[in-house]
Amino acid sequence: MSPTCKLTYFDAMGIGEPIRFLLCYGKIQFEDIRFDFEKWPSMKPSTPYGKVPLLEIDGKKMHQSAAICRYLGKKLGLAGANDWESAQIDMAVDTITDLRLKVTEYYWEPEETTKQKKKETLLNETLPFYMEKLDALVKENGGYLVAGKLSWGDFFFAGVSDYMDCVVQFDITKDHPNLAALKKKIRELPAIKEWISKRPKTTL
């Protein structure tokens, strides 16, 4: 029997999408609970540390997107084969998170002049820096982030990159062939391809 599973997150891809990818890949049926950004202030006090996504699985509640993905990765045989491989996945995911936070910081900047400056820095410095290094990492590891094989870190990258594409309004992997190939590889997995074909259309 499939576990009783609920994912609560904004009506967006964001950092909820890697979790959705992993749940779909693992054929774990889940209730995709979404809410509008306008409802967040009233919901925030009832969440652990005032953040989402939240995953409830078999009555146990989890928060922190990377921790949730790591948990699912272990369940699905997508974690490292040893402590070193696991650490390498964590390093890659933390690096992707560093980039994602810079993208988010730009997107939510309320002051227009400051936002334009952040956009210039993001497009001309931050994205090229991280993407070049991540692209080289994937090339070094035979088409994956770690150890030449599929890991939960690859799903994390593919899911989060969908969100980052929406923010900057272009495919962030377009000039980085190894990352582009990895993203395509994940998106063409049958379970992920099916999810993408039916997931709600969102702006983030």
Rank of each mutant, 00 (worst) to 15 (best):
L137V: 09
Y163R: 03
Y144N: 09
A67M: 00
C69Y: 02
Q116N: 07
K75A: 00
K61Q: 09
L137E: 14
N82I: 02
T121W: 05
K115V: 03
W84D: 06
I96Q: 10
Q169K: 15
K60P: 01
E140C: 11
T95D: 06
A87N: 01
K60R: 10
V103Q: 05
Y144C: 07
G159Y: 06
D154L: 11
F129V: 08
K102L: 06
K139I: 08
E112H: 03
V146Y: 11
M62E: 03
L145I: 01
Y106W: 13
F155G: 11
T121S: 13
L123E: 12
L123C: 12
E85I: 01
V167T: 04
T95C: 09
D98E: 10
M164L: 15
L150D: 09
V146R: 13
A158K: 12
D165I: 03
M62Q: 04
K74C: 01
I68Q: 01
Y107N: 10
I89Y: 06
E120I: 04
F156L: 11
A158R: 13
A79L: 00
E105A: 10
V160I: 15
D90T: 06
S86A: 06
G143C: 07
D165A: 05
K139P: 02
G59C: 06
R70I: 03
W152C: 10
T126C: 10
A158I: 05
D58F: 00
V146M: 09
Q169E: 07
P128V: 15
V167R: 02
K75S: 01
E132K: 15
G59M: 04
L145S: 08
D98Y: 11
V168I: 14
E120G: 02
T126D: 12
E140Q: 14
K119Q: 06
D135G: 12
Y144F: 15
I96A: 11
A158C: 12
V160W: 13
N141D: 09
M164Y: 09
Q116D: 05
D154W: 13
A79P: 01
D165G: 02
E109I: 03
T97I: 14
L137T: 11
T97W: 12
Y130W: 13
A66P: 01
L127K: 10
A81P: 00
A147Q: 06
N141R: 09
V103A: 10
D83T: 03
F170Y: 14
C69V: 05
A158N: 12
A92H: 09
A158V: 10
K61R: 10
D135N: 15
M91E: 13
G153V: 11
Y144R: 09
V138C: 11
F129P: 01
M131Y: 15
K61G: 02
N124D: 09
K117R: 04
D154Y: 14
E112F: 04
A158F: 14
Y106D: 03
K74E: 03
C69H: 04
E109P: 01
L101F: 14
D98K: 09
K119R: 11
Y130R: 12
G73A: 00
E140T: 07
T95Q: 08
D171P: 02
A79D: 07
L72H: 05
